[in-house]
Every structure is written in structure tokens, then in C-alpha cells.
């Protein structure tokens, strides 16, 4: 198995399940001595808005319904915990924030900053990248 030390996750989809698997992979990687960066862009931004999280307003399919029914830990709590235990940074896409007139305060506190693509591309350099 080849060893990688950096993982970049691009989260684009607004589907709850994709946010959930991204959070699962990010958590386990972050506690396994891998430096993880998540870039939230396009429809995925809606899952990181305080207002939607507060109202539990997510879009998902069958597995989302099961996760709710079985009271599984939500993706944002998973990410919060991973940030305490390991190296995990979460960035929101500046373009989408501009498009929706969002401010940093509109996003969950687990979001570290907002970045443009040039900045995220430099973070991705030498990293294994996964897109959801």
C-alpha cells in the first residue's frame, strides 16, 4: 500500500449522504496522521449553513432516512470531533459565497476559512484527492 500524508476532499454535491461519507473518510484520515483539507463548493455549501443545520434541513435519499432513524452522528458533529483529534481544515469556496451573498458567520463554526481555487490548488499539491 502506498503511503500518503495529505488528503484533499472536494465536496460539491448537496446530497446528505455525500457529506456523510466525506466526513467519515476525513475523520478516519485525520486521526491516522494524514493532513486533511476539505473544500466545500457548489450545492454542498447548503449543508454547512447554520440556518439549515439548525432546522435539520438536508436533502438525502434512503440512507439519509436510515441515518436519521437510527440517530447516527451527523456529519458536522463528526467533522467537529475530527478537528479536535487531528489535522483537519475545512474551507468554503469563495465563488459560491459571493454568489449567495454569504458571510463567514452564516457557515458552521467548523469552517476555517474561505478560499479561491488557486489557494485550494496549492493545498491539493501532492495530496490524494477525492471528489464527492
Amino acid at each position: 500500500m502506498s503511503e500518503f500524508k495529505k488528503l484533499a476532499i472536494i465536496l460539491e454535491s448537496g446530497d446528505y449522504e455525500k457529506a456523510h461519507i466525506a466526513a467519515m473518510i476525513a475523520s478516519v484520515a485525520a486521526v491516522s496522521e494524514i493532513e486533511v483539507s476539505i473544500f466545500i463548493t457548489m450545492n454542498a455549501i447548503y449543508n454547512f449553513l447554520k440556518v439549515n443545520v439548525k432546522e435539520n434541513k438536508f436533502t438525502g435519499g434512503k440512507i439519509f432516512e436510515k441515518l436519521k432513524e437510527k440517530k447516527a452522528q451527523m456529519f458536522y458533529d463528526m467533522l467537529d470531533q475530527a478537528k479536535m483529534f487531528g489535522g483537519l481544515k475545512i474551507y468554503a469556496c469563495s465563488m459560491v459565497m459571493d454568489l449567495l451573498d454569504l458571510k463567514k458567520e452564516d457557515l458552521l463554526d467548523i469552517v476555517d476559512d474561505h478560499l479561491g481555487l488557486a489557494a485550494f490548488l496549492s493545498i491539493m499539491e501532492g495530496a490524494q484527492t477525492i471528489t464527492f
Binding site: M24, S27, V28, V31, L67, K70, A72, Q73, M78, Q81, A82, F85
Partner: peptide, 16 residues
């Protein structure tokens, strides 16, 4: 009652 990676994260919490 926790789902993957819950048990692992619980272990890490204690280990720390």
C-alpha cells in the same frame, strides 16, 4: 449504538 467510525473515535477520545 454508534456507527462506523464511532467506536474508533470513542477509542481515540479515551486514548488521548
Amino acid at each position: 449504538g454508534t456507527y462506523c467510525p464511532g467506536p474508533l473515535m470513542e477509542l481515540i477520545k479515551e486514548m488521548r
